[in-house]
Amino acid sequence: MSDQQALRLGTRRSKLAMAQSGQVAEAVRRVTGRPVELVEITTYGDTSREHLAQIGGTGVFVTALRDALVRGEVDFAVHSLKDLPTAQPADLALAAVPVREDPRDVLVARDGLRFEELPDGARVGTGSPRRMAQLNAYARSHGRTIETVPIRGNVDTRIGYVRKGELDAVVLAAAGLNRIGRIDEATDFLSVDVVLPAPGQGALAIECAAHDADLVAALAELDDPYTRAAVTAERSLLAALEAGCSAPVGALADLPRALDPARAGEAPMADEQIVKEMRLRGVVGTTDGSTLVQLSTTGPVPGTHDRAMALGRELAAEMLAKGAAGLMGERAH
Rank of each mutant, 00 (worst) to 15 (best):
residue 277 E to Q: 12
residue 233 A to E: 03
residue 295 L to G: 05
residue 83 D to K: 02
residue 167 L to E: 06
residue 182 R to H: 06
residue 300 P to W: 00
residue 299 G to E: 13
residue 230 A to D: 03
residue 159 I to Y: 00
residue 196 L to M: 08
residue 98 P to I: 00
residue 42 T to L: 11
residue 20 Q to W: 04
residue 180 I to H: 03
residue 296 S to W: 11
residue 32 T to I: 00
residue 243 A to N: 11
residue 27 A to S: 14
residue 218 A to H: 02
residue 91 D to G: 06
residue 111 D to Y: 06
residue 113 L to W: 12
residue 288 D to V: 11
residue 77 A to S: 15
residue 179 R to G: 04
residue 149 V to E: 01
residue 4 Q to Y: 05
residue 276 K to A: 14
residue 30 R to G: 02
residue 199 P to E: 05
residue 160 G to V: 06
residue 16 L to V: 12
residue 12 R to D: 08
residue 264 A to K: 00
residue 117 E to T: 02
residue 50 E to C: 08
residue 165 G to E: 12
residue 251 A to Y: 03
residue 289 G to E: 12
residue 137 A to V: 05
residue 159 I to F: 00
residue 135 L to W: 02
residue 235 R to T: 13
residue 177 L to Y: 09
residue 129 P to A: 06
residue 87 A to N: 05
residue 48 S to Y: 03
residue 58 T to I: 00
residue 267 A to Y: 07
residue 273 Q to N: 03
residue 216 V to M: 12
residue 58 T to M: 01
residue 137 A to R: 04
residue 323 G to W: 12
residue 79 H to Y: 11
residue 73 E to I: 07
residue 140 R to Y: 00
residue 17 A to T: 05
residue 34 R to M: 10
residue 184 D to A: 15
residue 44 Y to G: 15
residue 265 G to D: 03
residue 126 T to P: 01
residue 275 V to P: 00
residue 197 P to L: 10
residue 281 R to P: 05
residue 129 P to D: 05
residue 30 R to P: 00
residue 134 Q to H: 03
residue 229 A to M: 06
residue 252 L to I: 13
residue 69 L to I: 04
residue 36 V to C: 06
residue 182 R to E: 13
residue 169 A to P: 10
residue 202 G to Y: 07
residue 182 R to Q: 15
residue 153 G to K: 07
residue 246 S to P: 10
residue 304 T to R: 13
residue 319 M to A: 05
residue 178 N to Y: 07
residue 288 D to E: 12
residue 85 P to Y: 06
residue 240 A to D: 13
residue 116 E to Q: 10
residue 149 V to C: 01
residue 1 M to A: 13
residue 193 D to Y: 03
residue 66 R to H: 14
residue 225 P to V: 14
residue 77 A to M: 09
residue 228 R to T: 09
residue 8 R to Q: 13
residue 32 T to D: 02
residue 221 E to R: 14
residue 48 S to A: 12
residue 52 L to V: 00
residue 282 G to Y: 01
residue 107 L to E: 12
residue 39 V to S: 12
residue 149 V to G: 04
residue 155 V to I: 14
residue 21 S to D: 06
residue 127 G to D: 10
residue 247 A to F: 03
residue 278 M to N: 09
residue 195 V to Y: 04
residue 22 G to W: 04
residue 292 L to V: 07
residue 18 M to V: 11
residue 211 H to T: 10
residue 328 M to H: 06
residue 258 A to V: 01
residue 155 V to R: 02
residue 241 L to S: 04
residue 74 V to S: 03
residue 125 G to D: 12
residue 304 T to H: 08
residue 322 K to S: 15
residue 9 L to Y: 07
residue 233 A to R: 04
residue 307 R to E: 15
residue 319 M to D: 04
residue 10 G to Q: 08
residue 256 P to Q: 10
residue 169 A to Q: 10
residue 65 L to F: 06
residue 132 M to A: 15
residue 114 R to Y: 04
residue 247 A to Y: 02
residue 238 L to P: 13
residue 331 R to K: 14
residue 130 R to H: 07
residue 14 S to V: 03
residue 75 D to T: 09
residue 68 A to L: 04
residue 67 D to C: 08
residue 263 R to P: 03
residue 179 R to Q: 15
residue 210 A to L: 02
residue 76 F to Q: 09
residue 21 S to L: 04
residue 77 A to Y: 07
residue 189 F to P: 00
residue 287 T to P: 14
residue 245 C to M: 10
residue 214 D to N: 11
residue 272 E to F: 07
residue 120 D to F: 07
residue 318 E to V: 05
residue 293 V to A: 09
residue 321 A to Q: 14
residue 331 R to I: 02
residue 247 A to P: 10
residue 243 A to E: 11
residue 300 P to I: 01
